[in-house]
Design a protein around this nucleic acid. Structure first.
Length: 234
DNA sequence: CCAGACGTTGTT
DNA sequence: GTCTGG
DNA sequence: CCAGACGTTGTT
DNA sequence: GTCTGG
């Protein structure tokens, strides 16, 4: 699944790789983005403007804002049918900017161990997402979004059986432009594992209040370098 | 017809 | 909003 | 995702 | 155990 991620790069570094539009004025590096917080989203393939949305999709018909608290992910296998996501899958798809994500490995009794996943070249990428517009009783609008998940690739599999859908540079804009269900459904596949890397990080990342570079530093207890990931699982 | 649900994850 | 269950 | 709370009453 | 908040 995907319950925490990062966007640590500066705007010029992002623009070097992705052809995106204007950024919000208050855009800043984030090392520990948690559900209910603001995430950087593109929903229009023409302006490619980056805007903030609340992470956790609140369907338009929800009776309260809290409905979004657990709608942080949508399964690729069922997203076209589920009442909470069906409309957004057809009409309100978006791209969510990121440059890494965390997954926790659960083992029997001990506490879960966090790992960081990112591209080998350290570049930014896009999650496949859905958005919704919800209005409170007093008509205050809240725009929110969810990240679509798919089965884990071979890199993520030892740690967790699900991962976020990452769209490559050629399909990300098609995710916004395409409207037929079948081609859209086909885009929701695990990302190429050979282009990614992973390593164990400190449990400092567990607390959403910790939002600094210490979150993405390889953990001192992991003696094996990131490139030898298969040996990391002990 | 109205009432009530609508999600993902992991664990046992 | 839309579907399922009663 | 993890951390942290986990209650009732009456009143506005 | 289960829900809410970040």
């Amino acid at each position: 699944m995907c319950g925490r991620f990062t966007l640590t790069l500066e705007v010029p570094e992002i623009l070097r790789v992705l052809d995106v539009g204007e950024f919000p004025d208050d855009f800043r590096a984030r090392y520990n983005i948690a559900p209910s917080q603001s995430v950087a989203v593109i929903r229009d393939a023409h302006s490619r403007k980056v805007e903030w949305m609340r992470w956790g999709l609140i369907p338009a018909w929800a009776s309260s804002e809290e409905a979004g608290n657990r709608m942080i992910n949508a399964r690729s296998e069922t997203v076209a049918e589920k009442p909470s996501f069906r409309f957004a899958f057809l009409k309100q798809r978006c791209l969510i900017l990121a440059d890494g994500f965390y997954e926790w490995q659960k083992r029997g009794k001990g506490s879960a161990i966090p790992y960081y996943f990112c591209m080998k070249d350290g570049g930014p990428f896009m999650f496949a997402g859905l958005w919704a517009l919800w209005k409170s009783k007093d008509m205050t609008p809240v725009t929110s979004c969810a990240i679509i998940t798919c089965p884990a690739n071979d890199l993520v599999k030892p740690i967790h059986d699900r991962m976020p859908v990452i769209l490559d540079r050629h399909t990300m804009w098609q995710w916004l432009l395409e409207s037929r269900r079948e081609p859209l459904q086909q885009m929701l596949a695990p990302y190429e594992a050979d282009l990614m890397t992973a390593y164990r990080v400190s449990r400092l990342v567990n607390a959403p209040d910790n939002d600094g570079p210490e979150c993405v530093v390889p953990d001192a207890n992991a003696f094996i370098p990131p490139t030898n990931f298969s040996s990391l699982t002990n």
